[in-house]
Computed example of a mutant assay.
Amino acid sequence: MITRVAVVPYPPLLVPALTVRADAETERLRGACLRAVSSLADSSAEWVAVGVDPSGPIRFSSNTAGTFAAYGRDVRVSLGDATPGDGVEPDPDLPLPALIAGLLREQAGARAVDVRLLAPGTPAEQCRDLGAELAGADTALLVLAEGSNCSDERSPHRPDHRAAPLDDLLATALAGVDAQALMELDPALCAEVGVPREALQVLPGVVADGTWRGELLYSGTPFGVTYEVATWTRAD
């Protein structure tokens, strides 16, 4: 069964080769993500990753490879030990959450990650049911999700006064393993402020049984987008 979960964001700035010079906040975010996924690798060498993308619902197996070429540099990653050099051609259209899952898998030294991307607008109950389906698997879970993208003047979208309170709610829920708070996220609000709540709503299905402990490793808005990094560990 799943006993370890990591929640991480998926911005391209996690890729060192895509930035000329990372500032201290970027390094802090990268360090928190590496710490989170290293804890997954300590639990299992086989991962399942869940994210959200317009191409969903779609699944990418561990024999998939991709490239960050669309983000400025041909940095190649794979979802399993097979690499492009082994005859697996990189998919130039592999969605960003899957690319980041592959990058973090490689950084943590895990054997493979199976990526499942939900469609935006997937009902909360379906997300929870996917979590319940995954809960019994002999694997670790990587959830790719971010906070709002419109909380301040640096944001890529017009600031929205509702964004910061939602980000605070997410940070509190992730720190405290508050599955009910995640299930009660407002779908319309999340869509309007850029929060992929569908991935987060897989978590209640995973942690429905047992006692879980949460740790918030990072919460910040370095470039106008809020990122949270957390781990959940089964304690019984």
Rank of each mutant, 00 (worst) to 15 (best):
I2D: 05
R4I: 10
V5R: 00
Y10M: 04
Y10L: 06
L13W: 03
V15T: 08
V15I: 15
V20W: 07
A24P: 03
R30C: 10
V37L: 04
D42H: 04
S43Y: 00
W47D: 13
A49Y: 02
G51Y: 01
S55P: 01
S55D: 09
F60S: 09
N63H: 14
N63K: 11
N63Q: 14
G66K: 00
F68M: 06
Y71T: 13
R73F: 06
V77Q: 03
G87R: 03
V88E: 13
V88F: 12
P92R: 08
L96W: 00
L99S: 06
A101E: 00
A101H: 02
Q107A: 15
A112Q: 08
D114V: 00
L117N: 05
L117P: 02
P123T: 07
P123Q: 12
Q126N: 14
R128Q: 14
L130Q: 09
G131V: 08
T139G: 08
A140E: 02
V143H: 03
G147T: 14
E153L: 12
E153N: 06
R154I: 04
R158T: 14
R158E: 15
P159A: 11
P165F: 09
L170R: 00
D186P: 02
D186Q: 05
R197F: 08
R197H: 13
A199Q: 00
D209R: 12
D209H: 12
G210D: 11
E215Q: 09
L216G: 11
L217D: 04
S219R: 05
P222W: 06
P222L: 09
W232G: 14
T233Q: 13
R234I: 15
D236I: 13
